[in-house]
Amino acid sequence: MQEFDFYAANTLDELLRLLAQSGGRVIAGGTDVLVQAQRGVFPASVLVDASRVRELRFIGQDGETIRIGALTTYADILASPLLRETAPALVMAAATVGAPQTRARGTLGGNIANASPAGDTLPPLLTLDATVRLVKRGGERVLPLAEVLCGPRQTCLEPGEIIHSVAFRRPSQPTGAAFLKLGNRQGMAIAVVNVAVSLPLDDDGRIAGARVALGAVAPTPVRSPRAEAVLYGQSLNDDVLERAAQAVLYDIAPITDVRGSADYRRKAAVRLTARALRLAAQQIREGAQA
């Protein structure tokens, strides 16, 4: 176990001040930080605890925009009727993170800040075109999620900057969305591959702007523009969905590691994408019937 200087903040202001003064890193739920600290590989020697900063723990609606505070836990996401309605893939992803204990402590902001290629909430957020609000003393900026994630375990966060919240627009059309994850066991699994899709339909019943995003198949979670292009303007049929799934192969670059080989990940990415697309399509059909 690494040793740290430890500060605890009670308010957002205090958090930003402590971070600026100490040059430390934020700890919230600790579900990633502590695992790395146990191995002695966490890249900081000062921790600033954000878990008491209540103003960063919220799920809210602002017109057509949904906002989720960085300290919102996976369990909070699971319990949110608003997110079940507007971001079902995100809810499905939150349900697969770790164990109940992990979900009670781990936070959405932490999942982003950890920037694991396998982070489960990241593909759903990519399919929502989510933006991330970054705040530091004397400034803030809003970036698309893809620009926040710049490499395996690397974000673009500047020193003293924190993830404040995530925002996305409520889907304006009937949309099917799904998240699927392949792990090496049922419980507490890290993704070998994970996939999120969203399929909005236009008034003519054609796929408007589909989103397909995958994790653990590239240095960061990635969207698959090729798969999205295959889907664009098409009607929902299994042939299209299958062709779109095959197209993800052009947009991923998996590696071989202890959880699976590159070949297996390619195969699994295609199959999981096909299933996620069918699941999303089925949701739309069921929604139309309802």
Binding site: A99, R185, Q186, G187, I190
Partner: peptide, 11 residues
Amino acid sequence: FTEYLLPTAED
């Protein structure tokens, strides 16, 4: 236990 997987209750 991150890489050495034991069966969990769910398994």
